[in-house]
Every structure is written in C-alpha cells, then in structure tokens.
C-alpha cells in the first residue's frame, strides 16, 4: 500500500474515532431534572387535569421519553399517602439551553370524604427498568366540597400579578360578589384550599373602580404588604340583600410556590348558618412563556 494512501486511511480512522468518542460522551451526560415548585389546587369536577413541566438538560437519556415511563403517581414526602394519576398528554420541546417535558395528568379519584392534601407533593415516575424518578412539585390539594347553589354568586374573578423575588406569580385576587339573598350575608373567609397560600383577610378591601391583573397590589390595598404576615385580625364584610361589591385580598405565603391555577372558596353566613360558594379551579396565569424557569425554586430530581 502506498504511504500516502496509508496516511489518509489513518487520518480517516482518527477522525471517525474522535467523532465517536465525542458523540458517546455527549450521550452520557448525567440527566438533571428540575421543576418549578407550585401550588396545584383543584376542585373536583369531571375530567380534572393538571400539568407538570420538567426541565431536563439532555435528550440523550431514555428517562426523558414517554415510551420508557410505565407508571405515575403523587405521594407525600413521608410516603404515607399515595395518589394514582393517569398521564394523558406528553410533550417534549427543545429550548435554547434546555429541554422541556410537559406532562398532563388526569385525576382518577372520583370521590373522597375529605380533601386530598399533600403539603409537599412528590411526583414519582416509574420506568421500564424498575428505576424511579422522584421530584418535588410543590403543594397539591384536591377538594370535593359541594357548592351550596344558593344566595351568593360571583360576577368577576381577577388575579393580581406580582413578584416576591422568585419569579412572576399571582399574589392576590379580586372577586366580584353579588348577594342573591333577601337577608344580609356576611363574607367570613376566602380560601384556595391551600396550607401555604392563603388570602389574608386582614387586608381585604372593597374597590369601586375597575381592576386588572397588572395593577400594583399595594396600590389596590392602599397599604404596604408583606406576604409573610400571617392573618391575625381577619375582616368580615356584610352584604345587604341584592348588593354587589368587589373585594380584593393579598395572598399570604409560607413557601416559595408559584401560583397560577386554583379554585376559590368563599365562606359566608346568613341568619341561619354558614354556606360556601366555590369558584371552580381556573388557570389564571401562564408564566415563564419565554422559557426561563424560576431558578430560585428549582429542585433536583433523583434517579434511583
């Protein structure tokens, strides 16, 4: 064989070897899974679903593909409570510096005597090689309270946007309420079925003008507000028969959770007894559309 041909062959061999080593090493990047911890609060209706977005650093791992996922469930941090869920939609999208797996889950629980509540919910995905991914996704609440279909209705429900240093989120709510009663009604409490995110009744104000989600919360409340302040002197509000009003409340938070989808329960009383109005869970915000996750609330997943 001519030396020049031999040289070319050797060069070719080195080039192919270098390319293969590079490709193999890139395909063995350790998988890193992250998610924004958020409040997932739902009120039971037919066909309830919720979505979890996972941010992964590589697409060269079998664990990012739907075909390898064989089971899904939510469980409490202490593993005492476990909730089966069905994956109904899987989407994988490429972004500039990461990949996003969007998982939409359907609830399989049709009835329960009391609220299902996981203060620190862990999403557990089982794979076909018997490994599992455990990733904390925030707080999960699923409530079965029946609406009283009675003397109070809502005319508007407006989220108020804010940022307490861990990304945009919903930080308060304005609700238009209309009494349909012949007797006075007293608004006693408003909740999101969450332990960590609660409307702070101490700061409830009535507003007369229009409100929109981009208005400044403290301007609406007309006072400085610290979301870590617990409620110590909750206000109530009495509506005359047929009266309509709009109330705004800030959310008090005890954890850094992104808030975008939730039901609202209004507890009110008439002369006889307490009743509830439930505004069904609704997506009030799409946050992080430009693909930037909230870095301060990420948690690493673990492949066992």
């Amino acid at each position: 064989m001519k030396p020049i041909l031999l040289t070319f062959l050797l060069l070719g061999f080195f080039a192919v070897s270098f390319y293969s080593i590079n490709t193999i090493s890139s395909k063995h990047t350790p998988l890193n899974v992250q998610t924004n911890q958020k409040l997932i609060s739902m009120h039971h209706t037919e066909g309830d679903t919720f979505k979890v977005d996972l941010i992964v650093n590589t697409k060269h791992s079998m664990y990012v593909y739907e075909e390898a996922m064989v089971s899904h469930k939510l469980q409490s941090k202490d593993e005492l409570l476990s909730l089966p869920i069905d994956l109904v939609k899987y989407a994988f999208t490429e972004h500039d510096e990461h990949f996003r797996i969007s998982l939409t889950y359907a609830m399989t629980l049709e009835d329960a005597s009391e609220r299902v509540h996981l203060e620190e919910a862990i999403l557990v995905i089982g794979y076909d090689d018997n490994k599992h991914l455990f990733i904390p996704i925030g707080e999960f609440a699923y409530d079965f309270t029946k609406d009283d279909f009675s003397s109070l209705d809502y005319t508007a429900s407006t989220p108020i946007k804010g940022d307490y240093g861990y990304g945009d989120s919903v930080v308060g709510q304005c609700i238009g309420l209309a009494s349909q009663s012949d007797a006075p009604l007293t608004i006693k409490d408003i909740t999101l079925f969450s332990s960590h995110v609660k409307p702070n009744m101490d700061y409830m104000v009535e507003v007369t003008g229009p409100v929109n989600p981009l208005m400044d919360l403290e301007t609406i409340l007309n006072t400085p507000y610290n979301p870590k302040n617990p409620s110590v002197a909750p206000k109530t509000l009495t509506l005359s028969p047929g009266e309509k009003t709009t109330v705004c409340l800030p959310f008090a938070t005890t954890r850094h959770l992104s808030v975008d989808h939730y039901p609202i329960q209004v507890v009110y009383g008439d002369a006889a007894h307490d009743k509830t109005l439930v505004i069904d869970d609704f997506t009030y915000a799409d946050i992080g559309l430009d693909g930037v996750p909230h870095e301060s609330v990420m948690r690493d997943g673990i492949i066992e």
């Binding site: 809502y154 005319t155 508007a156 429900s157 407006t158 989220p159 946007k161 945009d168 919903v170 238009g176 929109n212 989600p213 981009l214 505004i279 609704f282 997506t283 009030y284 915000a285 799409d286 946050i287 992080g288 559309l289 430009d290």
Partner: peptide, 12 residues
C-alpha cells in the same frame, strides 16, 4: 417582541 406572561380574568 417576547411574550413572558399572560393573565386571565373572568367576568360575568
């Protein structure tokens, strides 16, 4: 133009 967030308000 880069869209970063959207908020939905219900009104009857």
């Amino acid at each position: 133009f880069t869209l970063t967030s959207q908020y939905y308000s219900i009104e009857k």
